[in-house]
Design a protein around this nucleic acid. Structure first.
Length: 449
RNA sequence: GAGGAUAUAGCUCAGUUGGUUAGAGCGCUGGUUUGUGGUGCCGGAGGUCGUGGGUUCGAGCCCCAUUAUCCUCCCCA
């Protein structure tokens, strides 16, 4: 058979792992410096833990794991399978699923352990998640998320801290981004004005498309969804804020639009409070975000110079653990999409040059009789923190040298008959081509220089 | 779920209106200095043209089906 990997997955070679590690390190350091503690949860959860948390679409995109020992009757299995395809829970066929994001498993963890956790609880989590989505540019079926959440605190200071993490990390990674903020309460207020808070989902879906399909088509979609002409007129006025340039202008026009609406006043107050400390944030009243569990601030990060979907997102949820029977644990969190960040950085060519080159040394093998010497040279080099490879076979020297060249060793050490007589080594710099005969200690100094 | 594109050597691709032994670059491999790589020069291996049918005297090229991948929309990181 022709070897291949499943759709939407990737292998990571040495070069890409080093680059990915660079991103992970940057994010992990920022999380740690802001006092978040690490957490890991299983790759798969009980299906019931995940189902119904991501909306109808989300349920279909969850990777379900087939049970072992399935019912042998074909019709029964088929019926169960059809249920699963409809996005229903079907314990006879599948009762576990790969995790879809890090937030819901985290909520499950908090709900299970809230008695023991020191509140406010701050955790970060860097793990893979899986989605049975159709892969395309910047979209994978297995990808890595880096989440930081704070639960057990209503304070907007948390929003400020998380915003600062976004700001710091993308600055360090040298990705020009716009970090957008909005507040779900303002959308809820808009739904209220339209006569029904339940309309928020339909409203959010339509509004979110503004920059993609344009105002006219949004209006058409809204009217298809049954919004009245007066309501659409209101929504149009609301969307007009997207044209304004500054946060102040946007806030002002929204204030005028909503007047004395309590929710709107709350939302505006919260936005202003966060903006006081984070002037880099950009208000975007058309930002909606699909996930239903957000209730307050919502964030989204987009690269400004590269065509790519959002590379980060998050928001406040007042009752995430309520889904698991634990009330009154409000929280707020953000997420980084490492895979997209990687693609963006690759496109912008902003990976530091030195992460791909390692100061490694190759010891040329002149034959079995030198094994003991090579091992002790290697030991000295490694004690000096120099990654060292002993070429295992006494192949021709040009073969060994070619290997050194191909793998990108910075130094090669020759230790053969002549060198052994003088208790020295020949150190060759494979970048410059310079050779010199020196003692091992001198070689170590030269390499570490 | 809807739409579009592609499938030829290990990789990236070319292949002209269907016409003999299907090409290039890179990579791999051997030699060019029998203790030294990268650049040069010479040589070599490697493809039942995604799969299955059909049209034709003849198909990499045309038609149908199928599978896979990529891209767009939906949705998202």
């Amino acid at each position: 058979m022709k070897p291949s990997i499943p759709q939407g997955t990737r292998d990571f070679g040495a070069a890409s792992i080093r680059k990915r590690d660079f991103i992970f390190q940057t994010i992990r350091t920022a999380f740690t410096l802001h006092g978040f503690e690490p957490l890991e949860t299983p790759a798969f959860e009980k299906l019931e833990t995940l189902m119904g948390k991501y909306g109808e679409e989300g349920d279909k995109l969850i990777f379900k794991i087939l049970n072992n020992g399935l019912d042998k009757k074909a019709e029964k299995a088929q019926a169960a399978f059809d249920n699963v395809l409809l996005g229903k829970n079907e314990p006879k066929l599948t009762e576990r699923a790969l995790k879809y994001d890090l937030t819901i498993p985290f909520a499950r963890y908090v709900a299970m352990n809230h008695g023991q956790l020191a509140m406010p609880f701050k955790r970060f989590q860097i793990q893979n998640v899986w989605r049975a989505d159709r892969p395309q540019k910047g979209r994978y079926r297995e990808f890595t998320q880096c989440d930081a959440d704070i639960v057990g605190s209503q304070s907007l200071l948390n929003e400020v801290e998380l915003s600062n993490i976004y700001h710091n990390v993308f600055e360090q990674l040298q990705i020009p981004v716009s970090i957008c903020i909005n507040n779900r309460k303002i959308l809820l207020a808009l739904a209220q004005q339209c006569g029904d808070e339940q309309l928020i989902t339909a409203l959010a879906v339509a509004i979110d498309k503004l920059d993609k399909i344009g105002l006219e088509k949004v209006v058409i979609e809204l009217s298809d969804r049954g919004f009245s002409i007066e309501n659409i007129d209101l929504i149009k006025k609301y969307l007009a804020t997207a044209q304004l340039n500054t946060n102040d202008e946007k806030l002002e026009s929204i204030e005028q639009l909503f007047g004395e609406n309590e929710l709107a006043k709350e939302a505006i107050g919260e936005l202003k409070s966060v903006l006081t400390h984070c002037s880099f944030l950009a208000i975007d009243f058309t930002l909606a975000r699909g996930l239903d569990y957000y209730t307050g601030s919502i964030f989204e990060v987009k690269p400004t110079t590269v065509q790519m979907g959002s590379i980060g997102g998050g928001g406040r949820y007042d009752d995430l653990t309520g889904l698991f029977g634990v009330k009154d644990v409000p929280g707020v969190g953000i997420s980084f999409g490492v895979d997209r960040i990687y693609d963006v950085m690759e496109e912008l060519e902003v990976f530091p040059a030195d992460i791909t080159s390692q100061k490694e040394v190759l010891l040329i093998n002149f034959g079995e009789e030198y094994a003991t010497d090579l091992l002790s040279i290697a030991k000295e080099l490694r004690n000096a923190n120099i990654p060292t490879v002993i070429f295992p076979d006494a192949k021709k020297l040009d073969k060994q040298s070619k290997y050194a060249n191909k793998r990108g060793f910075e130094y090669v050490i020759f230790f053969g008959e002549d060198e052994k007589k003088n208790a020295q080594v020949q150190l060759k710099n494979f970048i410059t081509g310079d050779k010199q005969i020196v003692t091992i200690d001198e070689a170590i100094k030269l390499i570490n220089a």
